[in-house]
Design a protein around this nucleic acid. Structure first.
Lengths: 198, 198
DNA sequence: AATTGTGAAGATCTTCACAGCC
DNA sequence: GGCTGTGAAGATCTTCACAATT
């Protein structure tokens, strides 16, 4: 709900920081994010009132606050499971993007790519994943394995202490209540868009 | 709303077809998709009643009906714009997946990859995109360009007759009312998941 | 004068509950 | 007896409208 929109606000606040803007109104944030100004005020008020009536929001204060709410004030280590086409693309993408979260471990079962580097990270044997993830205390994982392997992968990750999973396998996966799974199914997205192509 | 869920139903119906199941209840569909049975019945009833009371839904009839609603009874040609890491991964992914929609054109502005093949398709010069998309009547496009180029890319696609866009650039893009844009922002997805990692 | 924060109204989406049909 | 189709109730999400504050 609100959490889903915070990253948009965060991105806009980054833009505004680069533009040396110090104060921003909910209306201007709305113009840049596509959400309504009331929505934005409600969202921000939900975590405590950060604005000044008659003035607006202090960009740097609000940015830091959202960063802290999202837990991005410390760089978050991420495990990537599956180094096929999609997994490798995600690894490269992540390397070129962010500082707030970084893929630090990559796992696969394919003998041919184990020990080889992908985006500067050595691929590790997926059979050791449980131990390594638990030992390093990794809390977030990206699953880019074939659909048949997805449920077992998520089971193992959950068991190893992972709290959030971004799943790219086109299948529904169950997880214990304390683990959040967000699925991105590219085939489904495209199929639903096909509806609008007549 | 309903449209978003149809691809899940479609996938389950494919599974059931492979398992030689002829009749399925909304309860069983719910078990497999994670949606409630009432939800599923409402969704299906919205497009006309396909079930038989006391019995269930005929798998092959329902599958064909959903395929037709989504417009996937003819293979849909798709243009991919941007052949960087992500674009190339999407091209390979699409080649290995589906028959219902196929990437038939790839465009980029990088001279070094124009005319080279990606996933068996020759990359074309993005400066010719408008003409080619309009001439071939392509209605769906995947945008995997840098954020700075996203809005102009969508503008050109919309102008060339595209009706649906799957956008991977991490930025809000505006489009005319008759064009549907669905954005998948991997950074945003990960950032909102970070919230659950404490 | 401008802009936030928020209760109330409105819209949308989901679940409940059961009549209707096989 | 079992399952669909659906109006009504409930829940959730969004917008409206305005008092509070600078």
């Amino acid at each position: 709900m609100t959490i889903k929109r915070l990253p948009s606000y965060f991105r806009v606040l980054d833009e505004l920081t680069k533009e040396d803007v110090e104060i921003v109104s909910s209306t201007e944030m709305g113009r840049r994010t596509g959400f309504s100004s009331e929505q934005i005020r409600k969202d921000l008020a939900y975590f405590g009132a950060f604005g000044t009536r008659g003035v607006g929001y202090n960009v740097s204060v609000l940015r830091r606050r959202i960063r802290s709410i999202l837990g991005l004030d410390r760089t978050l280590p991420v495990a990537l499971v599956g180094a096929g086409n999609l997994g490798r693309a995600l690894a490269h993408y992540n390397r070129n993007q962010q500082q707030h979260m970084r893929i630090t471990h990559i796992f696969d079962i394919n003998e041919e790519i184990i020990d080889r580097p992908v985006a500067g990270i050595q691929v590790q044997d997926a059979r050791e994943m449980g131990r390594i993830v638990a030992d390093t205390g990794i809390k977030m994982a990206i699953v880019a394995v074939p659909r048949e392997a997805a449920q077992k992968t998520v089971d193992l990750l959950a068991q190893s202490g992972v709290k959030a999973v971004l799943n790219f396998a086109p299948v529904r996966v169950d997880a214990p209540e304390e683990v959040v799974v967000k699925s991105v199914d590219l085939t489904s997205e495209m199929q639903s868009l096909a509806y609008y192509c007549r």
